[in-house]
Design a protein around this nucleic acid. Structure first.
Lengths: 150, 150
DNA sequence: CTTGACCTTTACGTGAGCGTCAATCCCCGA
DNA sequence: TCGGGGATTGACGCTCACGTAAAGGTCAAG
């Protein structure tokens, strides 16, 4: 360990924040800087600025991870924004609570269905793989070993 | 049973095929006719024609179900076409077998990852729901029962 | 001071996946 | 016979999620 020189009296803050530039963050998450700026325009991220330059905190990174997971499960960016907004400020009013609860449950139901579809697709692909393997085995030792295996 | 008049000497074919028009099929699967024509243009479906009119067989319906499931798990139409093409003609050559196997396994791996993301998202949403329910319970019986529950 | 590596904004381009006319055709029952 | 309802093929439009210049600011090293 011990990457680089540190000032002797270190660590006043409990969490060291470790800010990232946009290109660092992009590389870290396997996206482009364009994508991060786009997400900011869409209201999904709000990095702080030093001058005009964006700086991403740990919270921003966690948020980005959430966003990318949402994207990977098929959420639109609007969906993701809605869920993040839902998540963020514990909504005080009861009607809002009910609405948030309903939306969350809808999402959950849709995700369960999607999960079922994924499992079905995996099952079919695996069966297909087994068929291919059988075919492969049928071809290799079958025709009296025509081509040489050295 | 007994929908409509049938000729007396019925059922020579084992499978009755039950052809569908494009709008019937669309309604049955909850898509539009436009979508079905588009999928045909993209090489995903090949219904037979009576004159110029499309007629969809049971096989077409099964294929469509596969397509829609693929779409629902996030496959692009190009992905779906590739998988269907892979599926269809048992490719004879060993190199093709190996390639098909590799692609299938890649897909499976991606789907497993996606499934994990979905499960994680479901878990978070469920936890969020529990928080909302707790909040709800904290508001209802708390402030001396202001609004009446009859 | 210049160069180069970053950062910024603005803005137009792109591919996927359909939606939406428009014009035409064909068949079927009143 | 004449609508009317559904089928067809274009062809253009639109949204989403970015890609891709273009044109410029800033900072450190050489």
């Amino acid at each position: 360990m011990g990457e680089g020189a540190k000032p002797a009296h270190a660590a006043p803050q409990p969490a060291r924040e470790e800010w990232r530039s946009i290109s660092d963050l992009a590389q870290e998450f396997g996206v482009t800087a364009r994508t991060l700026r786009f997400y900011e325009d869409e209201g999904l991220l709000r990095p702080v600025r030093r001058g005009t330059t964006r700086l991403y905190s740990r919270a921003d990174r966690a948020r980005l991870a959430w966003i990318l997971r949402g994207r990977n499960v098929g959420f639109s960016l609007a969906d993701i924004r809605e869920l993040l907004d839902l998540y963020a400020p514990g909504p005080g009013r009861r009607t809002q609570l009910k609405a948030a609860l309903a939306k969350s449950r809808e999402r959950i139901a849709a995700l369960e269905a999607q999960k079922a579809d994924i499992e079905a697709t995996i099952a079919e692909l695996e069966q297909f793989c087994r068929r291919l393997e059988a075919e492969q085995a049928r071809l290799a030792p079958g025709p009296a070993a025509a081509a040489g295996e050295t």
